[in-house]
Write a protein that binds this DNA or RNA. Structure first.
Lengths: 225, 225
DNA sequence: GTTAGCGAAATTGTTGACAATCGGCTCCCG
DNA sequence: CGGGAGCCGATTGTCAACAATTTCGCTAAC
């Protein structure tokens, strides 16, 4: 939804949007750690914009759940506990389940082919041990399913939930043995959508994300949380 | 989550919070109709606060999905189409399903009794034809289930979805024959949670809200959308 | 040595003024 | 008579200064 207006507008029109995007990217990149205070004046200097712009950016990111603002106390990067990460993923589980079911009901022949292609690339990436590539394909697959479903409300929420967990999710994809577990799950989801079996698609997606929740717990035990 | 800080603080500290609440109440009451423009200057006068306060209130309500703001074009009350209302309710369906399952897994004996009490009151309200009362109990039941589940993430989202549809939801409860349909559904949900049957609780909740979606379509055909 | 109280620095909240933008209107030209 | 260029009022976006609040170090008393 945040369209990429670049053009050559008198720059004042862009700043608030880009400041938000730059700050979001910085947080997701780990330039600001969870719990770290976000002092407005510092951000002004860092981003080269006025305090007003910084404030609106912070409010926007607060709405996305990336930062938390306390009255008269300022903003800080939201720190997400394991319990919260699990809750967020549970929500994502049922939402993506809904979306998978919708996708199965609406998928076209072209889209089915596209799904298959991603599935094939995934399998290749796993056998080749290209985990980074597999992670990208994973994201592409989920995005495609959401596009097929055409469910704006669920799509927006899923994207918000995902944003809150990108750091963790990344660590997750590096867990050894994880691709071997998730690849057949992904293939099952693709198969169900191609067969236009909504119930099976939802079930497959939910079991897939349920196993992600399991992996989250494991990640915590190892101490990489 | 929006705690009720009243105290006797020098009022400036409260205004932004209450302005938001007043404006939200006004929108939900229908004082501002869907699609109606919300001109900042007018709201300043109407609410007796500065433009800065009005702006933050508008941004907050935009995050809740009650108003929409377009750059340089101002804010207006969000107009929710039937299709969007269905999407929102579908999301609510899977989220409340999740919450019902969690509630079934965590319910205590005292809470089970409380559920039963509400169920009894509901049945009485329906037989007595007290629809307004039944509507209140309906809300109380769903709130209690969410409280039992203790799932903050889902709870917040459900509340947001509900806020976007209160107007419609109200019209829905006045549909003749609607209580007769939903009462047994509610009783089935209560029964499942009391039996600590998570799968059945989720299924019952989903079928209940699925029938709400059906009713939404009927409402549209009648023209009360 | 510890803690309560005080005060200054740091930080956020708010205001009013100014700049940029939008929407509609008129008026001119074809 | 139709259409578009340009102007004007209305409205929103932004800024820099000011007010309120919090935080933290310091002092002093116990």
């Amino acid at each position: 939804m945040p369209a990429e207006k670049q053009e050559m507008s008198p720059q004042s029109a862009r700043e608030s949007a880009t400041a938000r995007d730059v700050l979001r990217a910085a947080i997701l990149d780990g330039a600001y750690l969870p719990g770290e205070r976000l002092v407005e004046a510092s951000l002004c200097e860092r981003l080269g914009v006025s305090r007003f712009i910084v404030r609106t950016a912070l409010q926007d990111l607060a709405a996305e759940g990336l930062v938390e603002v306390q009255r008269n106390k300022g903003a800080h990067v939201r720190k997400i506990s394991l319990a919260e990460a699990v809750e967020i993923t549970e929500v994502r589980m049922v939402l993506e389940g809904l979306v998978a079911a919708k996708a199965a009901a609406r998928v076209t022949e072209d889209q089915a082919i596209e799904l298959d292609e991603i599935g094939l690339l995934m399998r290749r990436a796993v056998t080749a041990g290209e985990f980074r590539r597999y992670s990208d394909l994973n994201q592409r697959l989920h995005a495609l399913i959401r596009a097929i479903a055409g469910h704006r409300t669920a799509d927006t929420l899923i994207e918000t939930m995902r944003g809150q967990l990108v750091r963790r999710q990344f660590a997750l994809s590096l867990l050894p043995g994880r691709p071997a577990i998730s690849l057949p799950q992904h293939e099952r989801i693709i198969e169900a959508i191609r067969a236009r079996d909504a119930a099976e698609a939802e079930l497959a997606m939910r079991e897939h994300i349920a196993s992600v929740i399991e992996a989250l717990h494991n990640l915590d035990e190892i101490g990489l949380a």
